[in-house]
Design a protein around this nucleic acid. Structure first.
Lengths: 221, 221
DNA sequence: CCCCTTATTTTGATTAGTCAAAATAAAACT
DNA sequence: AGTTTTATTTTGACTAATCAAAATAAGGGG
């Protein structure tokens, strides 16, 4: 099991590499980790020995496949924990980053999966940053869902991520088809309910699970 | 801020001292921490230097006032986290101890308070062990509440911990007075609801907040 | 009272992670 | 090209936490 220091190095390398595979200069990494450059050189060489990074002396460092897996897992924990802290514990936006910084190293995969389910499998965290999937995919084209989007803002439904006939019928009967514009009136995570407003129609209540299957994008107005 | 190793030493000393102030032998502590005795001697001397414990050479160690505060705070985190994992994330009883062991060192007081509120201020964890109060009081005579007790088992109401007239009237009108025997039918933490069964009466739904104010004890039958 | 067992403490080493400061390589200007 | 600036790497040292194994007390029989 990687120590939390190792996890941090990998996470920072991931976040600092512009596009996948780009070399991160040692000085930049040192700055980001609030550590002197010499320390980074030492650690990075150790990480390279364990096969987690690829170290190009005097040039920089990048993640290997194995390192990338670890880094994405840590990032997933970080962002899901942030989402939990804001959506369930009603914590302040600005305070959650520091908290998550600690918790991301202490939380197990099992707990994480349950948290993910509780939150309705959000695609983005409260800041709008994409949450890597369980399989370690970090999609750049990310849609929010009705379970995770901003409230009160007008949204266009873009996709229903559920194949079952029952669910699709339910969506059709309530006019929740791709293209439709809706707004989330209120979201009560404790009760697992989302209330939805459609122009010229009465308010509709939706379970969190159902809401999580409806992808939306902000309407540019 | 105490390192998590320090927190662990203090927590173990607390749990191993039969009554407050009893000396814990070094060997017992070493066993409990899965560490060789020499290590414990070294660490305990360091803890004594920081004023967290009182070390009696060749006899044992006990917590000081300051050490006790830290230890109780860690224990509170551990037990509240366990309660959260079982009651909200529906994790297995047996698995939560190891998880909480990690999380207890990563969680802030702020997060803990919010978790405590979400759970309805439980007095005991899923194992029935008492949860220290925010002020660091660990009551030995501990009652469960309708928000935290075992389901389906018959329980006698022993106390209503709420002074407001409205609440007491509500309790009286629904026959929830000390001495009454009830059973919890189902508890849905996501929805914040507890359903209550009284012999020869229809099922009654109660909010988690209300349930948390009603202390009960198991009926010995 | 002396020896023997048992618990505790010392001593010397090790690992992970860090810093300060000197040494080195690469880039960037004249 | 030659020199200066800048980034990186080395080197030596430190802290927290640990172990192995030797040294030291404390008690408990005989």
């Amino acid at each position: 099991m990687a120590t939390s220091t190792v996890e941090n190095y990998l996470k920072h390398i991931l976040l600092l590499s512009e596009d996948a595979g780009a070399l991160v200069p040692m000085g930049v990494l040192a700055e980001s980790l609030a550590v002197v450059p010499g320390t980074v050189t030492t650690m990075v060489k150790a990480l390279a020995d364990s096969g987690l990074v690829d170290h190009r002396p005097r040039q920089g460092v990048r993640l290997t496949e194995a390192g990338s897996r670890v880094a994405l897992s840590v990032l997933r924990k970080h962002r899901l924990v942030e989402t939990f802290l804001v959506n369930v514990l009603k914590m302040d936006w600005s305070a959650v980053h520091a908290e998550a910084e600690q918790l991301e190293h202490a939380i197990s995969d099992d707990v994480l999966d349950r948290l993910d389910a509780l939150l309705g499998h959000p695609a983005v965290d409260p800041h709008g940053d994409p949450i890597p999937s369980r399989q370690g995919k970090l999609s750049s084209q990310v849609y929010a869902t009705l379970a995770t989007c901003a409230v009160a803002k007008p949204l266009r439904i873009v996709r229903i991520t559920e194949q079952s006939a029952e669910f699709l019928q339910f969506a059709e009967q309530n006019g929740l088809l791709p293209g439709t514009t809706v707004r989330v009136g209120d979201r009560n995570l404790a009760a697992g309910l989302v209330s939805l407003k459609k122009a010229g129609a009465k308010t509709l209540a939706l379970s969190l699970a159902a809401a999580g299957k409806i992808l939306v994008e902000p309407v540019k107005s």
